[in-house]
Simulated scan of single mutants.
Amino acid sequence: MTLNGPGSRLGHSFLLVLSLAATLLLTGCGSASALDQPDALERADPGSCDAYGSTATNVREWAVDGGLDPRETSKSLQQAIDSASRSGGAIVQLPEGVFTLERPLVVKSKVSLRGAGPATVLKAGPDFLEFEGPLGGHPLITTNGAQNVTISQLTADQSGDQLDGNLPGRLHEYLVDVRHSTNALVEGVTTRNPYTYSIAVVASSNFCVRESRTIVTSSGRYDQLDGIHITDSHDGLVEGNTVDQRQGADGDDGLVAQALGASVHDVTYRNNDVRGGSHGSGLQLAVGTHEIYNITVDGNRFWDSPDGIKTGYYDGGTAAVHDVTVENNEFFNLQGPWLNFHGDLENVVVTDNVTCQAGTMMLEDAPGNVVANNVTSC
C-alpha cells in the first residue's frame, strides 16, 4: 500500500447489437457460484450483502466483429454503457473473447457490466497509458460517481506485464476502481497483470466485493500492489474472494482498510482466502487521521504471508482503531505475527482462531479487549 493521501493513491467496422431480453435476468448478490480454488478453505454459504448493485433486468447484448481495433472497441463499448444509463439502466452483456481497450471504461449509474465468465477479458491495449481516467490515473474500469452499479463475471487485465505502468498518477486510480459510488457490486471478477491495486473501493458506501480473484505474478516491476483495498469507505462486505499477491515478488497487502481522508467503518471481511505479497500482510488496517471501527474479520484463511493482520500508521496518523472482531479465522505459514495491533485501541475481540506455524499474537492492552479460545493446531 502507499503512504500518500487517497486522492493521490490513491476505420474498422463494428457491430453493436441492442436487444431486450424476453426473460427477466436479474443481477444480484447471489448470482455467482463460488470460485474453484482447490487449496482454499471450505467456505460456508456466503449469504447476502446489502449492496445489490444495478437492479436492471433488460439486457443489451454487446457484440463486435473480430476486426475491431482498441479505439473502436473502447468507443462502441462506452457508447453501449452510456446508452444503457440514459435509458434508465440495463445489463450490458459481453460475450466471451478478448476485447482490447484504448482507454479506461467508465461504468455509469444503473448499469450492470456483465461478462460471460472469466473467458470475457477486457484488456489494456498498447496505447492505453496515453489516456487518463477521471482523476488522472489509468484504471481499466471505473465507476467514478456512479450509483447502483454492477461489474461482474469477467476478467480485467491491466497489461502490466506488457506496459510500463510506472507513470505519475499510477496510484491515483486502480485496476477495477469503485469510487464516489453508492450501492456498488463487484462480483465474479478476475484481475491480472496489475500495476496498481487490483480492486479498490474509494470514498464509497454500501458496497460489496465478492467471489472475485486477484493475482500478482510480476517481479521487480512495481510496488504497492494490494489485492482488495478499501479506502475512506463504509458499510461494505468483502466476501468469498481469492486473493493471491505472491505468485510474483511485487505483491503487497492482500486486504486493506485505509482511513486517511475519512473513517472506514462497518466493513466485514468474511470467508476470503488470502495470501499477502512479499511486501505486505494478509490484512492491514491502515490508520491516518481518521478512525477505523466496526470491522469484522470472520472465517478467512490467511496463509504464506509475511504476517497476518496488523495495524499500520501513515501520514502522521494516530487515530483510534476500535470495535474490531477477529474470529474463526485460520492463520498458517506466516513469517511474522498472526496478529499485531498497537496504537489507540479499544474493544478488540480476538476469539476462536486457529494458527499453525504463524508466529505470535501481539495485542496491546486496551479497554474492552477480549482474547479467548485461540488455538494452535498443525
Rank of each mutant, 00 (worst) to 15 (best):
T155L: 05
I141T: 02
T231G: 04
G169A: 06
V370E: 02
S33D: 11
L135N: 12
S85C: 13
G240M: 02
V209Y: 03
L260M: 11
V17Y: 11
N144Q: 05
N329F: 11
A40G: 09
V111Y: 02
V121E: 00
P38Y: 09
T376A: 13
H322N: 13
D244R: 15
L334G: 03
V287F: 08
L26E: 01
G169S: 02
H265R: 15
Y197M: 05
Q357P: 03
G47T: 09
D253A: 08
G30M: 02
T27Q: 11
Y222R: 15
L167F: 09
C378I: 13
T231Y: 00
L68C: 11
A119T: 13
S8N: 13
R275E: 12
L163G: 05
R60I: 11
G66M: 10
E96S: 08
D253G: 08
D36S: 14
Y174Q: 10
D266N: 14
S8K: 15
G236K: 00
G251T: 06
V238H: 01
G11V: 11
T55C: 08
G169I: 03
S198E: 02
A21S: 14
N183M: 08
G115M: 00
D232H: 12
T311F: 11
Q357Y: 10
V370L: 02
N241G: 13
G47Q: 14
G169P: 00
L18F: 07
L334W: 00
V321Y: 15
D50M: 10
G66D: 01
C356N: 04
E187V: 04
Q224S: 12
A84T: 03
V326W: 10
L255R: 09
N333T: 08
N206Q: 07
S8I: 15
Y313W: 03
L26Q: 04
G227S: 07
V149A: 07
L154C: 09
E346P: 02
L25R: 03
T311S: 05
A319D: 02
V111P: 01
F131L: 14
T231M: 02
V17N: 15
D252A: 15
C49S: 14
Q247P: 10
L35I: 12
S54T: 13
D323Q: 00
I309G: 06
D177Y: 09
R86P: 00
D298E: 04
G277P: 09
T196Q: 07
A184Q: 02
Q93Y: 02
F131M: 06
S33L: 07
E239G: 11
A249N: 03
L260V: 08
T355D: 13
F99W: 12
T155F: 12
A200L: 13
L285E: 03
M1H: 12
D157W: 09
S204H: 15
Q245D: 05
L363M: 03
I141N: 04
H180S: 10
K123E: 00
L339Q: 06
G336P: 09
A372D: 04
V238L: 05
R86G: 03
G312C: 09
W303Y: 08
G145F: 10
G11N: 01
V209G: 01
L135V: 11
I309T: 10
V354Y: 06
P126L: 11
E239W: 07
S233P: 06
M362T: 15
V321S: 08
V354F: 03
S48F: 13
K108A: 04
G53K: 01
F131W: 06
M361V: 12
D304Y: 13
L334S: 08
D232N: 04
G28Y: 06
T289V: 13
T143A: 00
D69P: 06
